[in-house]
Design a protein around this nucleic acid. Sequence first.
DNA 1: ATAGGGTTAG
Length: 672
Amino acid sequence: MKSVANPFRLSRHLSTSPQLLKTPQEVVAITEDFCGQILDKHPDVRTLKRLHSKIIFERRLRSNPSIGIKLMRAYAACGQPRISHHVFDEVTGKNVVVFNVLIRSYVNNQFYQDALLVYRSMSSYNINPDHYTFPCVLKACSVTENWWVGTQIHSAVIKVGLDSNLFVGNGLVAMYGKCGCLVEARKVLDEMPQRDVVSWNSMVAGYARSGRFDDALGVCRKMESLSVKPNAGTMASLLPAVTNTAADNVWYVKELFMKLDNDSVVSWNVMIAVYVNNSLPALAVELYLEMEARGIEPDAISIASVLPACGDLSALVLGRRIHEYVERKRLRPNLLLENALIDVYAKCGCLRGAREVFDGMQCRDVVSWTSLISAYGMNGQGRNAVALFSKMQDSGLTPDLIAFVSILSACSHAGLLDEGRYFYKLMTQKYRLVPRLEHFACMVDLLGRAGQVDEAYNFIKQMPMEPNDRIWGALLSACRVYSNMDIGLIAADHLFQLVPEQAGYYVLLSNIYAKAGRWEDVTTIRSIMKGRGIKKMPGVSNVEFNHRVYTFLAGDQSHPQSKEIYEELDVLVGKMKEMGYVPETDSALHDVEEEDKENHLAVHSEKLAIVFAIINTEPGTPIRITKNLRVCGDCHIAIKLISKIAEREIIVRDTNRFHHFQNGVCSCDDYW
DNA sequence: ATAGGGTTAG
């Protein structure tokens, strides 16, 4: 080692002896070697600029093209492609490499238009693009989905005969794929004289992005049949094709994952995301834990991917542990990660946690605000949600369609009828957003819950699109609450045509009949269900305890502590009766909600989960329950009393929202 | 050199 290659040493030298730079004569001579070594180490901008001015004083170095190239690369690495361009301007006798480096400087810094401008200028210098230029400019077209320039580049490629080059071909496949020209992409791929795993992955990505699941999987199978080993990139490319997909596709990806021999963090992240995107949160969490156990260090993406699964499962303890990991590894600030943290706290009913993350953020986007707004909304704090919405507007952010879904649903859960109407107007008139089905569903829900059933029905009638089952479902729920038989029958009629297999709506209608005392109709509905083989979804409740999520079914007797749980429940019910509790055991009214009728004598799952938690946790520990259906009226009353008797805060998340039970009352004020 | 992994509602 003959020269100093430590940029820190250079920068210290220069900063403590600035007089060295005063006159060129005094400058200690530096060699090309020395310069090159420092530049290749990617110094920070300050060091870079000092070195740059030194180079300018040295005539020998200034005219050296290889130093110029290194300078350009170093500036690009510091996110300063404009300065790379200035260096480029000074280089005399530019060759293709100098152009390539400048183009890459721009592309690596997402200045795609500038990259393409430089590419276009090459002809006026009489310099031909080469097999390094094309992949780079094709990438610029890919990212910006610039099909027009992309095809022009394709012609240029053919003209100079570089279409047989592997890297150029890969760039073309990716460009066409990104632009949605799958036929073109496929044609290029098929005609390539040689292909590698990147060629195939690009094709997979193209199909996957366009939602062509079967084609994407077909390419995977084809590459396997040609003995091209899929890698983590193959899985990553496939990802958009495996959201809300058939179980078979999930298992296919799982098999791919098992077959990979490299343990890259990307493949684990993709597998976690696949589970999350297919409503398999328990598997996602399990895989995350296995990843930790195997010593594969989760990165920000692993965490942003697994946190929604924790939220789904209400796995607050795990969520908190992951949050600590984020702090320990200093993964913050990271907007997406922090947004995911807000959401996991929100979904676990832990408003304070959500708020703390939000307050601690350096910058926030619409997603951050929306997450917090919906957190307040789900927890019945509509007024706070409304206040937050105004603050978001004040901060200069423009609410999007999702933000409006959140605020409308917050209003509907809190019974804020006027506010809800105001936000609907705001969305359509001020922001000129076109409402989607979700917004209509929120409005029907808002009006219906507030007792404006006729207006809700009229609202549906004037919709510019076909209402879906959620919309009729919201109307039917309102009809049950407000005993509106006429409109209820209309809603039910639509529902039975739209989703004849959904048990919940039959139950809702039978509840309306029961309330009106029309028992023959109740019986008729039950026999229709039986005849059509419609099974109700069994009620399930989850509770996290001792780093595990425990699941209880309605009437569950499979738990080892089952006997103890039922005994304790009996004791509780006795105390509740002393306080005036009358169990709703009337066979028709009992399952006011969607709980399985077969289990009407069985204990609902949330009661079992709550008693399990009371038995196993320290007195005073809050109890958090998640269930897959809505809480029924009987359980709602019972849990209020249990919260008083057992002196526990009980937080129940059902399909729509949270109920915070404490000291005999619920945060929803019995409005849900 | 070329591909490829993340957050918000319902």
